[in-house]
Nucleic acid binder design. Sequence first.
DNA 1: TTTCAACGACCGAGCGTTCGGTCATACATC
DNA 2: GATGTATGACCGAACGCTCGGTCGTTGAAA
Lengths: 209, 209
Amino acid sequence: MTQQKKSIPSMVKDPKLIEKRREQIVEAAVGLFISKGFHKTTTREISRASGFSIGTLYEYIESKEDVLYLVCDAIHQEVEKRLKEVLVDATSGVEKLRSAIKGFYHVMDEMQDRVLLIYQEIKSLPKEPMRYVLGKEEEITAIFEEILEHGMQDGSLKIEQSAVKLMAHNIVVLGEMWTFRRWSLQKHYTLEQYINIQTSLILGELTTN
Amino acid sequence: MTQQKKSIPSMVKDPKLIEKRREQIVEAAVGLFISKGFHKTTTREISRASGFSIGTLYEYIESKEDVLYLVCDAIHQEVEKRLKEVLVDATSGVEKLRSAIKGFYHVMDEMQDRVLLIYQEIKSLPKEPMRYVLGKEEEITAIFEEILEHGMQDGSLKIEQSAVKLMAHNIVVLGEMWTFRRWSLQKHYTLEQYINIQTSLILGELTTN
DNA sequence: TTTCAACGACCGAGCGTTCGGTCATACATC
DNA sequence: GATGTATGACCGAACGCTCGGTCGTTGAAA
């Protein structure tokens, strides 16, 4: 199920150093991509912001798109990590879902810029890396799918089996929507209001059927 | 409320001809942008696909971004036109909402590629045109807002007043989601299934409160 | 002496945009 | 009808520049 993570070749031997430099690259690139977008950011800007020269940058990547891939991967990793941190409290059924939604939407809020970045630049990735990144997105959706299944097993949720997968997508997309429609939503709602309304929308259908 | 439509200067005198040529440009560019994206499409390709030379292309636009603006505008115009066509049957209340959702989602399905195009390339527009295009998006949302209000007035819908605007956004985004998550959704659901589940999600919350 | 990360001047393909010029058409003049 | 002239849509070679990517060199460390 989980795709093979594409590993980018490097001219440099020391793996520790590679990791360190790539962290620098990602940190620098995230900021640049958020403020100017991938296409309008030059490799030279990335190298400068990373703290080294253009030549050195190319010791650690093979193409500019590799940088985008590293960035997308790092962001997804952080989303998933944070989401799983929020999920540890093993209450059961609906309550688990409630707190998962709340936690996830808070993560979306805190990581707005980075989430939006993935949304907007993912299409600039080459085919293979793109598939991998989309796979990550499905993994996150799958987490909610499991929570829904769990709630159905303990009887606290009732959903048609065929709707489960779609509900998981809905939960994720309604979270991401907080970022990509912020130009309108955040003028009219606070995060807490947003979470409350969306949660009751999602649970409304689920519990009454 | 409605933004001023930005009109692009042209070197050519005859307005009829301008309109005709710009239609050619849009038609050509939509195809190219869908298959290669805005950034990877060259002005020369656009002119070639439009049926005239690069020099002539620049008689009708001032910059490559103008083409993107023309494209986005044309797409939105078509969405809005089609949506309004579907809304004519003046049944009332919930039924109006039901058929509006169904109609809108069908439009999204038929215009998948073009809707997705706007989603992915809007950010490449200069500030002003972007504001205008986002304004169009709010207009579409407003149409659903009105339908919701209408349903509340005739008593067939009950929603907290504060949730109305957000519900309208939800309806629109869940429609657009059919396009931007098609890599997963369309593997698991038919359009009809999708419409049914989403409609009952939306109405579930609305009617039971 | 060997190794190798770091450097940055250099390369050249490709891009958006320009501009001097062509030519079909329309109209005026004889 | 023949001739001259103005118009304006159309053309595409060429320009200037940007930017991703390369490679010969340097200098520190082992």
